[in-house]
Design a protein around this nucleic acid. Structure first.
Lengths: 224, 224
DNA sequence: GTCTATATGTTGATAGAC
DNA sequence: GTCTATCAACATATAGAC
């Protein structure tokens, strides 16, 4: 078994080899197809066509559909909450954290609007994905950071509460509320489009407005 | 083609016939399996076993997997926003609407926690579902009601704003924020469980707390 | 209405040439 | 590394007996 990633190329930053480019093209194509159809609904043939290669090559690089799906999911999971955890764990004060998370997340989701639906879909239908999701996160932020995010937030909140400038709120509720307000509109986009009669253009305007108003909305809810 | 629903039984409220009970059992079993595996990942055989019937009977009643999936989705879509639209369209004042929507939705989702993930998954992967979703809604609330929900909410908001007791907010943002805060925790439950280290019991407590605190949280965000 | 048995078409995966 | 050709395993759907 000689997988391309096992080969040594001397470690120098060379231009991508043909094989690497093929592997990358396959991964990108798989991402597109898996996101659109879901893992179970995706067809290896469609991925191969989208990548401009033969179906056998998919197995050459990734061995099975399952492993390919796992590779795609891992990469996608690392994208969903990239900067968010970093921001929440930072030393910035709460107002700034909220404002920056909203901007970062909405800007990012505007570029990859289908990501939330895909992640949610995978996590609900594929039991093992939860483990893979957490290990993908620990690839970005070390294992011990996440519990610390909650403790840090909790400390910041308690400090505010003591000062009388904030209502008490559990840090878990804080995080979930913030993520919900950012992510849900994209995850539920098809539902919202038919419910509210939004076409693509209106949805874009809807999000643009949200980008300005969401952080103030959230922060008002925290006032005493 | 003699479908059981075409048969006349005199219109009197009789006990369910064997056939009806089979059809119902199939629909329930299909719901369970489709929700767990997703439409593409579900197998007719598994549904048949769960319903305690033969696979051929599924086709006898529903003709194809696709039609069965459509029937299941339509029923599920009617469940997701059952009372919510009714409450939002009612004459109650805004505080009461918010409070009641939170209670109704969280209570309902506690009983069917997998519904949001399933609906979102279907809508993102199956393009035609959007049409079916809206027609399922119009089965519950007449077509002309939903635009009126937004107008009604808009009028109530403007009234408050004029009185100085509320910040301006577009009714679309109002509705999406409210739904996001209610539904997202369930749709993203597997993600939140690993991110926040919640087991099932902790998640239940998390939601119980949310049931008390969410409406006040939301209403504070609306204050001037 | 409900079953068993089977046809028919896909799909993921492999073998082997180049 | 990349291709063509092909296999074996399902999964959906139907035929036909009871």
């Amino acid at each position: 078994m000689t997988k391309p990633s096992d080969q040594t190329r001397g470690g120098r930053p060379v231009a991508l080899q043909p094989d690497e480019r093929a592997e990358q093209r396959i991964l990108d194509a798989a991402h597109t197809v898996f996101v659109r159809r879901g893992t179970a609904g995706a067809r290896m043939q469609e991925i191969a066509e989208a990548a401009g290669v033969n179906q056998a090559l998919l197995h050459y690089y990734f061995r099975s559909k399952d492993r390919l799906a796992e590779a795609v999911f891992r990469r996608a999971a690392m994208q969903l909450l990239p900067s968010v955890i970093a921001v929440l764990a930072s030393k910035a004060d709460l107002e700034e954290k909220v404002t920056r998370v909203v901007q970062l997340e909405l800007d990012h989701l505007l570029r990859t609007p289908h990501l939330p639906g895909y992640i949610i879909s995978e996590l609900t239908h594929h039991p093992d994905r939860a483990r893979q999701f957490i290990s993908a996160l620990t690839g970005v932020t070390p294992e011990h950071v996440r519990p610390r995010v909650l403790r840090t937030l909790g400390a910041q909140i308690r400090q505010r509460v003591r000062r009388g400038s904030m209502r008490p709120i559990a840090p878990e509720q804080f995080v979930v509320n913030l993520l919900a307000l950012c992510i849900f509109p994209f995850a539920a986009r098809p539902m919202l489009e038919v419910m509210l009669g939004l076409d693509h253009q209106r949805f874009a305007r809807f999000v643009a407005r949200r980008r300005r108003e969401l952080a103030p909305f959230f922060l008002r809810a925290l006032r005493p």
